[in-house]
Write a protein that binds this DNA or RNA. Structure first.
Lengths: 153, 153
DNA sequence: TATTGTTATACTCTATAACTATA
DNA sequence: TATAGTTATAGAGTATAACAATA
């Protein structure tokens, strides 16, 4: 293992591992609090995320919602059932292609959706950062989620 | 909303929201790849995380594993069942208190556990960062996960 | 009485396969 | 035949409540 990694490379790897564990921990905390807050709105996490993906001003087909959520079409049925029972969303058959049903956000759905969006971007956890630190973190997060990773990953 | 937040505070809030969404996205990607890699080891994500929490050199009671995983005791039963069927862990009744069963990592469990640990701290996603950026990210992640957050959060 | 581990049960999330009605 | 939505089913994860054995 000596000819593969210099001591310095090993230090970097160890640091990277610690960063990953910290980020995982932070993400867990964020997720936990989002789930709690979303439950206060009477929604399960998945239903809330589905509602958040809908555009109140431009109804989309179920199929597109599945694509947005990166999940199977079959799951969307139950999620929309729940949102429809709560009066937040209406299914409307598309006259142009009677196979598709478009998902219309109701007036009640509009305000709940706004609340959900606020929850899903809650940033209390970042309250302790100074402005400059927040900007730095923003740059790093962008760099990571854009091209920070080998293609085969 | 004018007397509450100055324009600058609003900018900061917007930036913070974007950071949260980016971090959530990064965490999802990490989690996804960890789950795939852990499946290659023949383990479900939860079973893998359970194995990772065990100390190969110091067997602990089921109750303590539940505490480590921050989940109910009843879940640990099924997870340990799976690990035991795979020959990675053994249940051993504690002679000092016959109610408790300690979880012993087998020889096979030891090596699988090491592989799991490597997966759970996989840092390919951070490969694109320069050393200085990685160190900065480490500091920020520490700051966030330590005291970056109001007490009532 | 209290605690450990287990069982029974239920809910959520997700996936696959088969069905229907349209196209 | 292909597609949109649905249904049926299954596995994984997690939670609560009740139980047996032990303390």
């Amino acid at each position: 293992m000596d000819h593969m990694t210099s001591p310095r490379a090993t230090d970097r790897a160890q640091l990277a591992r610690e960063v990953v564990l910290r980020l995982t921990h932070v993400a867990s905390a964020m997720r936990h609090h989002m789930d709690v807050d979303v439950a206060r709105l009477g929604l399960t996490p998945a239903a809330a995320r589905a509602l958040a993906k809908l555009d109140p001003d431009r109804p989309i087909p179920s199929r597109d919602l599945a694509a947005q959520l990166e999940c199977d079409r079959s799951n969307v049925t139950a999620l929309v059932d729940k949102l429809e029972q709560l009066g937040l969303v209406e299914r409307r058959t598309d006259p142009a292609d009677r196979r598709v049903k478009t998902l219309v956000v109701t007036a009640a759905g509009r305000s709940t959706r706004q609340a959900v969006e606020a929850v899903l971007s809650d940033h209390r956890l970042l309250a302790g950062l100074r402005d400059a630190e927040l900007r730095t973190l923003h740059e790093l997060a962008m760099k990571i989620s854009d091209g920070g990773c080998p293609a085969d990953y």
